[in-house]
Simulated assay, not measured.
Amino acid sequence: MNREFVKLAIAPIGWTNDDMPELGIENSFQQCISEMALAGFTGSEVGSKYPRNPAVLKPALALRGLEICNAWFSTFFADGRGEQTIQEFRETLDFLHSMGAKVIGCSEQSGSIQGLPQPVYGVKPVFNELEWQRVADGYNHLAELASEKGISVCLHHHMGTGIQTPEEIDQFMGVVNQNVYLLFDTGHVYASELNQQAVVNVLEKHLGRIRHVHLKDCRTAVLSRVKQDNISFMGGVCQGMFTVPGDGDIDFAPIFSLLEKSGYRGWMVVEAEQDPAIANPLEYALKARQFIRENTGL
């Protein structure tokens, strides 16, 4: 891959999990960003321990050769909370713009079960026609707001949400305008379908509108147990259903090949939520960085 086009980042969720803060509560912001840089990454997404004052955050990152590439943002359009979503979006947008980011990763969280103590392979939200229209209208509006600041709105498909499966991703991409993009997450497609080909198919189908990539690997045996034993999303995380690229069962060769052939420009972000007490964050960051280097030349 071309170093001029593709940059490498890592998400702080491997050090502290924002959905379950007790995972990694002992890991500080300073430790997190220092180990990211030590492992050889040049970018980071935003975590709950990160200062939200750019005057504080920028120097801390610059000292380590890091920059912010994206932040998670939850939307609630399907359930009718559009006004609140847009107001909060403006605040996050302003922050990311001040940090120089070009992408904002949004996840439609209406009815999401990802943080609930119920089976992640159980009853997830399925949007009706009205809810899909609300989502489409909402994301189209967000994209217009973001474009004024040179930022792309990307949908982050996610387990336990109304936009999880390949079919739901297809539907979303079909109902929104062309200036709404996709945050492609290898692990969430694989976890949804337990199928390698599904990951490749989603990537191939939407290559032209992918502006951000999350590299997450999966352990199939753990996912199968999570499904069989009716375990929750966070329960699965604690048991190790996700890991860094090269440490699980996803074949990344066709993924890297498709991205390279398409001329992908943007960030590839290692995002692998695990229990840091079990999976040492620095050790796994180094493992991911070595795998990417060996398989992409980056």
Rank of each mutant, 00 (worst) to 15 (best):
S112T: 14
G115W: 02
P119R: 02
V120R: 11
G122V: 10
G122T: 07
V123I: 14
V126Q: 14
V126T: 07
N128S: 03
L130V: 10
L130S: 12
E131G: 12
Q133K: 14
V135D: 10
H141Y: 07
L142R: 08
L145A: 04
A146C: 14
A146V: 04
A146P: 06
K149S: 10
K149C: 09
K149I: 10
G150W: 03
C154N: 11
L155F: 09
L155S: 05
L155H: 12
H156A: 03
H156C: 09
H158Q: 13
H158V: 11
E168P: 10
E168V: 13
F172T: 07
M173I: 00
M173V: 00
N177H: 06
N177L: 01
Q178K: 09
N179L: 06
V180Y: 07
Y181D: 08
L182K: 03
T186S: 12
T186R: 02
H188C: 04
H188D: 00
V189M: 01
S192K: 03
E193V: 02
N195G: 02
N195P: 00
Q197K: 15
A198K: 15
N201I: 00
L203G: 14
K205G: 00
H206R: 10
I210Q: 08
H212D: 08
H212L: 01
V213D: 07
K216W: 04
K216Y: 01
T220H: 04
A221S: 11
A221L: 09
A221G: 04
S224L: 14
V226I: 08
K227T: 03
K227G: 07
N230M: 07
S232Y: 07
S232D: 05
M234D: 00
G236T: 10
V237P: 13
V237D: 01
Q239T: 11
G246A: 04
D249N: 15
A253M: 06
A253I: 01
P254G: 08
P254I: 02
L258A: 15
E260Y: 11
